[in-house]
Write a protein that binds this DNA or RNA. Structure first.
Length: 506
RNA sequence: GGUCUGGUGGCCGAGUGGCUAGGCUCAGCUCUGCAAAAGCUGCUACAGCGGUUCGAAUCCGCUCCAGACCUCCA
């Protein structure tokens, strides 16, 4: 699925009803792109100094669904998600050292080796969870020149100053003519007392000021020449630079995790306005909420984060068993992105069972036989309208999933011969699953082992089921049950239906 | 201390001024050789206290509780 395959330039009639929860206004607003049918979307990507955990995955999944839905509606979306490969100060030591650089020294690796390793890991994880790659995935180190240019502009406009080779954003000065703190609801005077002593604090005119450029000391492995010093860019700057470069000074959607709202996103706005003028750079700010574990935020520092590998294998002290990536994807989509979601074994198991039922019905859909004489079928068009209504209501995936379960009941009833549908009805159901379950939610059947050998497996199973049916016909229950029990042990479920026996893999 | 979010049935999790969320679990029923699957039914829900209203879980106020952010974090 990509934007070029959508109907040429035609927007779905449902597109006009899309509403987004805008963090900036704190209200649900109707989505009106700046320049339809084009949509620009920027999402803060990972800092590649360690493996991503599930909390990170949740955010990228959230915006994956946003991306998929916008494309489905017919928008031409340019989705930019950056890779932060330089620029974040370390928090625990307060020495202002670059995270990537620090990690590199510890492991005796080149900084870019670290970056590459964890970028690869990140991409692997995205693939496992079926999260689509963005249109552009720019890196901070690839945009040093642009970052320097933006700093120069901000200085030129009087909102930044140089001190001892470093450059700081002048928050007080900016706040005289702009609303600093609008996004996060923070008031500048209250922030004043809260900042604690960071490196270079003495160079700042005000504790609130944040770094645009930092002079590198001898311990730094990553540094670049600039008009001010040999150094590195501040950690808010890259997103301002790259969003502007690829999406323009005004663009539609900016996404990221809730924890980036302040200071990161607030600083981004200040930088954009400081460089380009007073217009809001972003029309709709979307913030995904945190994934919690036993009520606590999952984070690197808490040590309560699962890596995807631990999750799949179940090899973690908080996990009772392993869960497939699709189960986790489905689990996350059963909650709304703007609310916290608690990760627990019972919840995962519920999602696993629920997904199985959904997928089971979806599988049956392929073989459903139409019946033209069918009596009044359920109103399947209404089902589709409800699906759109759910997504249009700020991407309400849990409600969409509830709609899909209504479809599951119809499918199962038809498959069991309790209900009949004409061809049109079946097509409507198929389109519903194909559009909403597959394209928009990104759910797909997980193939069990032995992939690529499907025909032979089918043939073998057919033989086995035939033998068992004969045993049943002869009332040879012992043989029939033996076959079933042995298959169950092997992870093959036997289901006796009215029209014969079907089977599924675990 | 400041800013903000949330407290929904056994569990997870939507939603809303009056109309079934949904999933999972559990119990019963239908179907079935049995089981599984599937379908149906049920499992007394909206933190507490006030207020507004014909009517509030949904709006307002207060209280309690939890979490996030204020410092790197999706």
């Amino acid at each position: 699925m990509d934007s070029t395959t959508t109907a040429a330039g035609t927007l779905s009639p449902f597109a006009k009803d899309l509403h987004l929860g805008n963090s900036l206004s704190r209200e649900k607003e109707r989505f009106e792109p700046y320049n339809p049918p084009y949509v620009g979307m920027y999402v803060c990507g990972p800092t590649v100094y360690s493996n991503v955990h599930l909390g990170n995955v949740r955010t990228f999944l959230t915006f994956d669904v946003v991306y998929r839905y916008l494309i489905h509606l017919g928008y031409k979306v340019r989705y930019v998600r950056n890779i932060t490969d330089v620029g974040h100060l370390t928090g625990d030591t307060d020495d202002g050292e670059d995270k990537i650089g620090k990690k590199a020294r510890l492991e005796n690796l080149e900084p870019m080796e670290v970056v590459q390793r964890y970028t690869n890991d990140f991409h692997d994880v995205m693939r496992v969870f079926r999260i689509l790659p963005p249109s552009i995935e720019p890196t901070a180190t690839g945009h040093i020149v642009e970052q320097i240019a933006m700093i120069e502009k901000i200085i030129e406009n009087g909102f930044a100053y140089e001190a001892n080779g470093s450059v700081y954003f002048d928050v007080r000065k900016f706040a005289e003519s702009h609303h600093y703190g609008e996004l996060s609801g923070r008031k500048i005077d209250e922030l004043q007392n809260q900042t604690r002593a960071l490196d270079g604090q003495d160079e700042k005119r005000d504790p609130l000021d944040f770094a645009l450029w930092k002079k590198a000391d001898a311990s730094h492995l990553m540094h670049w020449p600039s008009p001010w010093s040999e150094g590195f860019p501040g950690w808010h700057l890259e997103c301002s630079v790259m969003s502007t470069k690829y999406l323009g000074r005004t663009f539609d959607i900016h996404g990221g995790g809730m924890d980036l709202k302040f200071p990161h996103h607030e600083c981004e706005i200040a930088q954009n306005m400081g460089a380009h003028g007073p217009e809001q750079p972003v029309r709709y700010w979307l913030h995904g909420n945190m994934l919690t574990v036993n009520g606590r935020k999952m984070s690197k520092s808490e040590g309560n984060g699962f890596t995807p590998e631990e999750l799949i294998t179940g090899n973690h002290k908080l996990l009772e068993k392993g869960y497939s990536p699709m189960t986790v994807r489905f689990f996350m989509l059963q909650g709304h992105y703007a609310g916290t979601l608690d990760f627990s074994n019972p919840a995962l198991q519920a999602a696993e069972k629920g997904l199985e039922r959904l997928m089971g019905a979806w599988g049956l859909l392929a073989d459903l036989k139409p019946c033209e004489s069918g009596e009044a079928a359920p109103d399947l068009a209404a089902l589709r309208a409800r699906a759109y209504a759910a997504m249009n209501d700020d991407f309400n995936t849990p409600v969409l999933i509830a709609v899909l379960y209504d479809a599951v009941k119809v499918v199962n009833s038809v498959a069991a011969g309790r209900m009949v549908l004409n061809a049109e009805g079946i097509d409507t159901l198929r389109a519903l699953f194909s559009d909403f379950a597959a394209d928009i939610l990104g759910l797909e059947q997980e193939v069990a082992g032995g992939a690529g050998d499907g025909d032979r497996t089918d043939g073998l199973m057919e033989v086995i089921c035939t033998l068992r049916s004969e045993a049943k016909a002869n009332k040879d229950w012992a043989t029939a049950d033996l076959i079933r029990d042995r298959l169950t042990e092997l992870g093959v479920q036997i289901k006796d239906g009215k029209d014969g026996t079907s089977w599924t893999f675990d």
